[in-house]
Amino acid sequence: MSITLDNIKLSHGAFNLTANLKIESAKKIAIIGPSGGGKSTLLSTISGFKSPDQGKVFINGNDVTLTSPSERPVALLFQDHNLFPHLSVKKNVSLGINTSLNLTETELDIVNKALSRVGLKNYDNKMPFELSGGEQQRVALARCLLRKKPVLCLDEPFAALGPAMKKEMLSLVKEIVESTNATLLMVTHQPEDALHISDETILVSGGIANIPENTSELFSDPPPELIKYLGA
């Protein structure tokens, strides 16, 4: 699904963000830029947690500016706290199908398949605290899979993981996104993550979200703000 941010303006105290850009359907987009520059705000605007002071958000041509987060075709994965600590892995994933947790046999089967898909077969009865950080994010990813939302937003969900684990998770995300034809938006601090997974990159700095550019071209010939951020 394509995403259009039409003349978005958003301010919060001294902080400002403007965005005027279009993201093509089924693209994998990295969002990069300095801390406090507005990367997470951009994702919050698309997923519906922050409403803009001005401008409109379109997803697949539909105006969703006033649509609540649950009714947007967007799934968002946070850096932390994606799971309810008192619910088992199975129940946490089941929330993606039915929030009252009354699942039929067929639905339970779907939950188990999603768990196998992220490499967590037979983890269904474990509790979140028994899992490593990477495994917890896999559970959250399994839930995103079930929800079949055509837009997947990742707000630095793998920032706390080691390099090998992170690479593995990125590959898994890439594989899932490509097989479901979803649009991916991922906030990251690392150029290599952007290069590993994304087609295009949005540079967010100084309160402006720039239009997406081809990732490898952007990094081979970086503009001044990006050079400043990368410190190269």
Binding site: G48, F49, S68, P69, S70, V74, H81, F84, T99
Partner: peptide, 22 residues
């Protein structure tokens, strides 16, 4: 964590669900 409220909003968990899960 604020993420739990956002997660509930995303999943469309209603008020009684929030009372049950949070």
């Amino acid at each position: 964590p604020i993420e739990h409220f956002r997660l509930s909003a995303q999943l469309g968990i209603n008020t009684s669900g929030i009372s049950q899960h949070i």
